[in-house]
Design a protein around this nucleic acid. Structure first.
Lengths: 252, 252
DNA sequence: AATGACGATGTGAATAATTCACAAAACATG
DNA sequence: CATGTTTTGTGAATTATTCACATCGTCATT
């Protein structure tokens, strides 16, 4: 990245919202066209977004996961939305609930009613989302090391933290499921956390879109017997849903 | 808010980035002009930002504090930037540091070198910022209840959490200072947390822009004798800086 | 039921911003 | 120094946005 582009980026980061006119005045050694091209360049790298007559900083989009920026997040967006809506209907007022990390959980957070709820989560982005958009829920963030890939915390003392929290309903996401291996995820730390949550919650609701059925990830954290309800989408094959029901799990 | 506007908002929230053409097609019962006006309406309420040929969702801007949206954040932006730059120069590699909540701390986070650092913070927004923008630092988030106003956590067991963390340098922000009252803040919880941090850190660096000098807030959390260095801006009156130095505090 | 005030919506011209193709300049490389 | 490559500037062509105004529908008042 060029010196000038860095400078423009810094300038916009400070001002947070600038017009092209302002920039051409500030960087008058270059033409408008060059600044334009720089903005385009910076937009491609996700440092900012161009608006009609200028640009704005991109408030570090914690919504999208790192790497494929937006790509991964929007995948199966409709399915996840459907699941989130169904799951939100299960939330009662004055409940103490746990909300997992992940894009499905983020959507559930958005669908949550603005009521008196105690929401514990290991995903700081989801916690912030709730606190900024709703007035009534109380959000409790679990502490620990912040993982880059998942934007969730995990700590050696999660168990201690959970000891003082009484979680009624836990909404947990899984990245994979097969009959043989149960529910699995890609990260070891997540696995430990999910197990702890499942062990301490009175009721466990699993959120999983149909694209994750019949796939296996490195770490298994739960079996069918550990959960009460599974919320999935309309594309989930009836055969698997029947198998869930046969194991005594509610399927929505 | 009208039905249609809600629908547009939801549509954009799902897609995250839409063109006007796409919207006029989706909401073909209305004219382009009406959609335009709706986007303007939604932009004013901070639900999205309009781009050149459409709009994007506003990824819940955790950077700006609630309420005055952006107003408060950008106040004295230049002063804070100056402080952040000076403070960043004090950061050594391989250090274990604490970063407070607040807009000055956010700016410091941005100025931090992309090195091997252990950064503990009670501000999840700052933690996410670091983790998404830099590759090398390790971020540790303190757990607890997420405060709406400050976007920082505070918990009954902060002290327990700090016990296992050895913080070398703590960068702490204050909202007010007078000779008589010392350093003060507006919230009780913050006050408790800051005290705990100051007690456990080897070196305490206070960040405070000159607009906060000579103002008093409800809760005092530190005296001059508790801190090692104070970083302020060039507008700070020489008389106060002299008083700081007289008390054995380094002033930058 | 007629009237008028009001807000919401649509229309097209006027304005402004953006893109594009190309030329000139700067830079590097053998 | 000739050559190819990248960066930058220019103005015309294109496209998007704004604005003023016309229309429609709703609702309260007479």
């Amino acid at each position: 990245m060029k010196e000038r582009q860095e400078a423009i980026k810094r300038y916009i980061e400070r001002k947070s919202d600038v017009t092209l006119a302002e920039l051409t005045k500030e960087f008058s050694d270059w033409s408008e066209m060059t600044i334009r091209r720089d903005l385009e360049f910076l937009e491609q790298r996700r440092f900012l977004i161009r608006t009609k007559r200028g640009a704005r900083i991109m408030p570090t989009s914690y919504e999208v996961s790192v790497g494929m920026y937006g790509e991964r997040e929007k995948r199966n967006c409709d399915l996840k939305q459907e699941i989130a809506a169904k799951a939100a209907a299960l939330v009662e007022t004055d409940i103490s609930m746990y909300l997992d990390a992940g894009s499905t959980a983020m959507m559930l957070a958005r669908e949550l009613p603005d009521r008196n709820l105690i929401i514990t989560t290991s995903a700081p982005n989801i916690g912030i989302e709730i606190v900024l958009k709703k007035k009534n829920p109380t959000v409790i963030l679990l502490g620990g090391t912040l993982q880059r890939k998942t934007i969730s915390t995990c700590g050696l003392n999660v168990l201690d933290q959970l000891k003082t929290l009484n979680i009624d309903t836990a909404f947990v996401c899984a990245s994979g499921y097969t009959d043989a291996t149960g529910f699995s995820v890609g990260g070891q730390h997540e696995c430990v956390l999910k197990r702890a949550i499942i062990a301490s919650a009175r009721r466990v609701i699993m959120l999983m879109d149909s694209s994750k059925l019949n796939s296996i990830l490195p770490f298994t954290f739960a079996q069918l017997s550990d959960i009460d309800t599974i919320v999935t989408d309309s594309k989930a094959p009836e055969s698997i849903k029947a198998a869930f029901r046969a194991a005594g799990v509610h399927v929505l």
